[in-house]
């Protein structure tokens, strides 16, 4: 399958990229690693007039610390996220979930920023960003602004980014001593998640003191399982976790497609929440 014809530009700087995007408006698509955009182009589901390849803009790759915040460049590949010692130490959930994205060859090219900006409801990392309370930093003609993950994902494949804004970094509050687990259910190993659950658990005195749960593919955007989070506070045994997980699908709007009905997705959300929280409570 041959992508439709498009013009191509590879800006050398962030400023140039923003200027090109501002001039092109809605007709441009940003290319980072291309692991979501290229399949869309090949299937002719997208017809951009201009593809803006930001893949070589310096300074957007890699992980650093800023006080007690982890700063991950938007162009950091999944492969590099998985292997980064800072991510593994302070945002283990992100490393573990990223290791389940697609397959090794895709993880070599695909980027964290690209995956978040693409905002596919079946993508694994948006729910993880939500659970981790990440801030997404965008640069546009008006300068920089920071958007909380909870406000970034607007709708199906839609984000808070304006057409002339570029996601440049992902800021994650460092968390130590929290247990974590990303659980997903899919038909074959490298396929999209039917449902995924990102769980973070802080324990104290043999109980769950606090839980943060992000849901993948339980609506057009990633969601927090707020009711289950509240019910998990104080849970002291697997039975209590199972009861709390029973409310994991509350307030969600799962879709119907060839692989699952909304009812089945709700069932998966409950089962996977129980599994993820139990695993997270054991990894803290």
């Amino acid at each position: 399958m041959i992508p439709p014809a498009f013009d191509y530009v590879r800006p050398d700087t962030l400023e140039e990229a923003v200027r090109v995007l501002a001039e092109a408006g809605e007709e441009a698509k940003v290319l980072a690693g291309g692991q979501s955009l290229l399949p869309l182009l090949r299937l002719r589901l997208a017809f951009p007039e201009l593809v803006v390849d930001v893949g070589r803009i310096p300074g957007l790759r890699g992980v650093r610390e800023d006080g007690d915040t982890l700063v991950i460049g938007a162009l950091t590949t999944h492969h590099d996220v998985v292997h980064d010692p800072l991510v593994r130490r302070y945002a283990g959930l992100l490393a573990q979930a990223t290791e389940t994205v697609a397959d090794p060859a895709v993880r070599h090219r695909g980027t964290l920023g690209g995956s978040l900006a693409h905002a596919d409801p079946a993508g694994d990392l948006p729910a993880v960003a939500l659970a981790l309370d990440a801030e997404l930093v965008a640069v546009g003609p008006g300068g920089r602004r920071s958007v909380p993950a909870g406000e970034f994902f607007a709708d199906y494949l839609q984000t808070a980014l304006a057409p002339d804004e570029l996601l440049v970094e992902v800021r994650v509050p460092e968390r130590e001593g929290w247990g974590f687990r990303y659980e997903k259910f899919h038909r074959v190993s490298q396929s999209w998640a039917m449902v995924g659950v990102a769980a973070l658990v802080r324990r104290a005195d043999g109980r769950i003191a606090e839980a943060r749960i992000g849901l993948t593919n339980m609506g057009p955007t990633p969601l927090r399982a707020t009711a289950a989070e509240q019910a998990l506070a104080g849970a002291a045994d697997p039975g209590a976790v199972a009861r709390a997980a029973g409310s994991a699908a509350e307030g969600t709007r799962p879709s119907r497609d060839a692989s699952a009905s909304p009812e089945y997705r709700a069932h998966l959300a409950r089962v996977l929440t129980e599994r993820a929280v139990l695993a997270a409570a054991g990894t803290g």
Partner: peptide, 13 residues
């Protein structure tokens, strides 16, 4: 130095 799926990379990349 890394494996990629060459149907998912543009020649210009």
């Amino acid at each position: 130095g890394m494996s990629v799926k060459s149907c998912t990379v543009l020649a210009v990349q």
